[in-house]
Write a protein that binds this DNA or RNA. Sequence first.
DNA 1: GTGAAAGCGCTAACAT
DNA 2: ATGTTAGCGCTTTCAC
Lengths: 346, 346
Amino acid sequence: MKDIKDVTKLSRRTRPSPPSAHDVARLAGVSQAAVSRAFTPGASIAKATRERVMIAADELNYRPNLLARSLIRGVSDLVGIVIGNTRNPFFFVALEQLSARLSRAGKHILVFTAEGGENADVQVEDLLRYRVDALLLMSANISEELAKRCRRDDIPLIFFNRRPRWDLDFASVTGANANGSAQIAHHLLEQGYRRPAYLGGPLDSPTNNERYDAFVGVLRGEGMDEPPRVNGHFERAPAMEAARTLLRLDPRPDAIFCASDFLAIATIEVARYEFGLDIGRDIGIVGFDDIAEASWRSFDLTSYSQPVVPMIEAVMNLVSGGDDQDMAAQIIVDGSLQKRGSTRRG
Amino acid sequence: MKDIKDVTKLSRRTRPSPPSAHDVARLAGVSQAAVSRAFTPGASIAKATRERVMIAADELNYRPNLLARSLIRGVSDLVGIVIGNTRNPFFFVALEQLSARLSRAGKHILVFTAEGGENADVQVEDLLRYRVDALLLMSANISEELAKRCRRDDIPLIFFNRRPRWDLDFASVTGANANGSAQIAHHLLEQGYRRPAYLGGPLDSPTNNERYDAFVGVLRGEGMDEPPRVNGHFERAPAMEAARTLLRLDPRPDAIFCASDFLAIATIEVARYEFGLDIGRDIGIVGFDDIAEASWRSFDLTSYSQPVVPMIEAVMNLVSGGDDQDMAAQIIVDGSLQKRGSTRRG
DNA sequence: GTGAAAGCGCTAACAT
DNA sequence: ATGTTAGCGCTTTCAC
């Protein structure tokens, strides 16, 4: 920046520019287009030519520049992902699956993480500049205005494990929040719990609200009152505080439905170590997601599963579905209730 | 693909092409170059012109195409990351930090996950095609050959939390494996444990071996024998099996140093729930990383911390250090021993 | 300060 | 099957 009197044409980089298709073409004695074809799977090129190209390419350590290809094709093969809650293991598993599936489809992931709850507009704007083929929001928020701009630009916006907060028809892939929560309510009642409480995430989280509403729906159907409820963040410290609040109630709830396993685990620890409660017998605790930790002996947590593989499969369909794909599909993937020790009274 | 008789110039995409700088220029009544300048921070452009451009850009919902910019500049502002072990929360914390720091530096993350232990060559090859500015391997392996090609292409390869398996001088950022493990050994001895064992990762993991060697070094210095040792994977199920093997030994070890917290937590559960041992009193257990879970009440695990923030800071220096940066720097970031209940005898 | 023009590395017509 | 040509959307000289 200070001295641009550099002699080379690359004033800012001392790094040598990598070999281009032209270099390979010259070395192989073919046209540059032939090099392009050699690297394009279905292209019409003679075996012998391709071979010569490949040898030359190998010698030069040539790799086609995907940036240039994307520029021409108008498609980047890049999928943008914004992860809102990196503390929840559920999202790692999802990211891993997605990475595997996308790379098989020749697509790549441009990832961002956004601090919990914060608006990810800035990150998303950045992503859009890369002309991503699709944008996946994992538990992250963007403004309604930006969402509308994506719609206007025809950039598929996919909500994962969360629906948009506004009433627009964007695609979403979620677990069976309503069904799962209803099953959980029934299970708690069957096990003889009579004073269930709810420990949830933010009140403006649609996922949270869907779970709560279905839960309450069942209780109401059984003639019960609305359960005590504490809402807050999807994070650990606030969750522990919320658990304390619930456990100090008089009469104390005899069961707590937590809106995610991550919250439920925090609740188990508070109940067990701070209140000396016997999990299952003294208090039933249920989570949602069925993350790996739920089945660990330390927690043995009853949970409604969100099957990552089918959920990712649904995402894949949306991403590579092409133009005639319904970009407003609301996909709900069923899970199943995993009954474990945390809701066993006997 | 079936019918290319499309009238438009875009035969494969029905998605309308986004507005280009040209479109904006026409609307604003300026040259296309002016548009470019309007979006380039330090460029020489009149305030009034920039404003007119911005208004037009806004109207069209224009965003500069970073792909095109990268093509010209020969630098993509993309950093490739391969995560080898997605089950270990340590890497997610690192990813989150990195994402935050990089996006402040105007760079973006192209991420891949590689199944544990597998060779990530394929993923890396892909990454290179995007002309990434640097490549970060988080606990992932690539072949020596590919590493050499990166060197040849002048693509900075950075090993995070692991050194290369071969004797080449690539940059690495690691925790204080030797120092930390030595501290752990001393701590165990101080606490009165006399028959420590080692539960480690793969034998070809340099990280694993550094930790083991330093651990044994201290024990030897105290005149003790080489401890019983089981090596395997950095995963849960094999770790549990390894823990069983160690705990069935006669005489049973009275302490186990696990090469990571993730392994240590699995070991705690086996010891507590399968062998009925009182953690701390009957058996001391130590981990490495000091992940968030280590301080959970359920585990209360003594661990040597790997401070993510300084480690990421070191990575940032390597990534944006530019050309005169030492691309073979071996950076070791000190942590500190967090003594907790899992090694408290009394 | 601004526009015209060249070209980054590649793909996709269009010829042959 | 292959080469030639024309750009993709932008940045960057180079004149003015």
